[in-house]
């Protein structure tokens, strides 16, 4: 895949040797099987943990339940995006294209929940 990208920078017209060096994709070793199965294992364990937490009534009723689940879900989200979608190894542009909209989306979600009275801001 890397060399296919590199060859795309070949500009037929730039043979005159103009001072032009396109920013080729940073070369990083892609993760392979040894990382992939560990990632899958971690994802499975987190999922098992989440479902287990759901079935512990004392924990499910406690204040820590929702934040814990949100944290675990966010963790899984991040792991898949970083390793399976190889954002960790890929061009910086892709990170911007994903995190920008994700940020706008998250803030919109929080704003809407507040406006519809599901979240409360305490003044004083």
């Amino acid at each position: 895949m890397m060399d296919s990208h590199a060859s795309m920078t070949n500009l037929p017209d730039s043979a005159e040797g103009q001072a032009h060096t396109p920013h080729a994709e940073e070369e990083h070793a892609h993760p392979d099987w040894s990382i992939y199965w560990k990632v899958a294992l971690i994802l499975t364990l987190i999922t098992v943990g989440e479902v287990w937490a759901f079935y512990v009534p004392s924990f499910a009723a406690s204040r820590g339940f929702v934040p814990t689940l949100l944290f675990l879900s966010g963790l899984k989200f991040t792991i898949v995006v970083m390793f399976y979608m190889h954002l960790k190894y890929d061009h910086r542009l892709f990170r911007v294209l994903f995190t920008g909209p994700l940020l706008v989306a998250s803030i919109t979600l929080i704003g809407l929940l507040f406006l519809f009275g599901h979240l409360h801001i305490k003044i004083m």
Partner: peptide, 9 residues
């Protein structure tokens, strides 16, 4: 397979 600014597809 044309020139691209960032060398990305």
């Amino acid at each position: 397979h044309h020139y691209t600014t960032l060398g990305l597809d």
